[in-house]
Amino acid sequence: MGVHIDIAGLRPEMITVAISPLAELGMALHALSEPEHHPGLKGWVTGVTARLDPHLADRMCEADFLWRTTFSDLFLPFAGVPGGAVPPGETLAEELDLIDKLSDEEFVDAALEFTCPLTYGTPGPSLLVDAALRHRALELAAARGPHQARFTERLLNDPPRIRTWLRQFLQDCDAAFYADTWSRLRHQLAADARHKTELLRRKGLSEALAAVSPAVTLDGAAGRITVDKFCAGPGTSADSGLLLVPTSLGWPHLMVLQRHGWQPVLHYPANSPELVAPPSVEQLALRMAALSHPVRMQLCRSLARSAFTTSELAQAHGMTAPEISRHVSTLKKAGLITTRRRGRYVYHQLDVRVVARLSGDFLEGILR
């Protein structure tokens, strides 16, 4: 399980780290639309929301599907500019200019990628030229409510008009709240980018990726990067290079841009409060499955209070020792119980700290 980036044959100098004011604005809009995803930003969200102009707030709702579910690839336009790898702009205005370099087909497909998912990661016809895909996109938009239905219809009928609308909206957000936010965040992000660049230069890609997140690993022999997620993406090739972009507002989201024909981008939270060694999604799924059985839930109730031998558990729960052993083995394999020997007896006990972290691990895993 996870998302893969093929880097076989990729030269080291083609892996770069850079900050993006437009990508961070996308995360700011996402945090404002989904504050429950980002409890650590509660103060910032409350402050921005309190002073937000009502007209701008209404416009934010008009197209929030571009950043509510996650944020659209439109906020990473440098990855899709024709002609190869293009670095992010140094200013928001420069990056808005990069959006203008995308074709209408790319602009529309990127805008609807999450909420009207028809094709992603593989080549296919454009929504602007394929009548069947257009009809399906409008159906999916209507199912998500009148705001998205109206916006999607306008987008498909007149992409240049929506380009103008989006640019003006983002400029207004910059004037209303984002310029101040970016002035505070860009120094931190730039420092993180310099640190990761230095790791790349001095210690190599494996060390740099380990510093990005424990959920990102490198298989050097296979020439592949794996991002541990509760999904299996189609995979992507980094023929044109790989770009790492830090975000200060993004935790717990760890995202991979893998659109066909675009440069892969790993968008990662800088200075994230992740555990030193968070469980993989495979371990997390194992733990959730282990706890889902009613007998094992009853065993956990006992093991949370004290340590017990297999025989004691069998007697207390009216089961045979082999039956108890199978359930205990499942809990132990999932990392939920500890075992210690005292003389000729083996005692089992629930690892309460692991169970207490489970909800946080699960939330981080599904939002990653």
Rank of each mutant, 00 (worst) to 15 (best):
T119P: 00
V17G: 02
R161Y: 05
T69R: 02
D100K: 05
T46L: 11
T226Q: 14
G335L: 00
T16C: 11
D174R: 12
C231Q: 13
T339N: 10
R301W: 11
A289Y: 10
C173P: 03
L266P: 08
L166A: 07
E312I: 05
Q168Y: 03
R184P: 05
R202G: 06
P246T: 00
V245W: 05
R342G: 06
D228P: 13
H293D: 14
E13C: 07
I366P: 08
E62C: 03
G26H: 08
F230C: 06
H38W: 02
P146T: 00
L22I: 01
P273N: 04
L112T: 00
I19R: 12
R59G: 01
T16G: 13
A110I: 04
S240F: 09
S240V: 07
F107I: 02
T119R: 14
L291N: 03
Q188L: 12
L22E: 03
Y268F: 15
R186P: 04
L41F: 07
V227T: 09
S33K: 10
S248H: 03
S292G: 10
R161P: 01
T152K: 02
D100L: 06
L102W: 07
C173N: 05
L10I: 03
F75D: 06
A79E: 05
P35S: 07
L299P: 03
H147M: 09
H135R: 14
Y120K: 10
D109G: 12
R161Q: 12
R259F: 04
P322G: 01
Y345L: 15
I337W: 00
L331M: 09
H37W: 11
Q148Y: 08
I99P: 01
D130C: 10
A208E: 00
R161A: 14
G80A: 12
S237E: 14
H4F: 15
E94G: 14
S359A: 15
A193S: 07
A50Q: 12
S33G: 04
R144K: 15
S206E: 15
R326Q: 14
L166N: 00
H260N: 12
V212N: 00
G124N: 01
L25M: 15
T338H: 12
L284G: 02
R296C: 09
G223I: 02
S280V: 08
L284P: 07
P54C: 02
I366K: 05
F65K: 07
V45C: 10
S329N: 14
A63R: 02
A85I: 01
R59V: 08
F230Y: 13
Q258V: 06
L102D: 11
H293C: 12
T49K: 11
I99Y: 06
A289F: 08
R150I: 01
A142E: 13
L102M: 00
A50C: 06
A79Q: 06
V265A: 03
T310K: 10
R150W: 01
H4M: 08
A110P: 04
P322V: 02
Q188I: 11
T330A: 13
Y268Q: 07
F114Y: 15
V45L: 06
A304Q: 10
G220H: 09
P125S: 10
I15S: 11
T164K: 13
A79W: 08
L133N: 08
A222M: 05
T46H: 12
L32E: 02
R305I: 05
Y178I: 07
A191E: 10
G360D: 13
V355F: 12
H260I: 06
D73T: 14
Q168A: 15
D174Y: 13
W182R: 10
G360W: 09
Y268S: 04
V216P: 08
P246G: 03
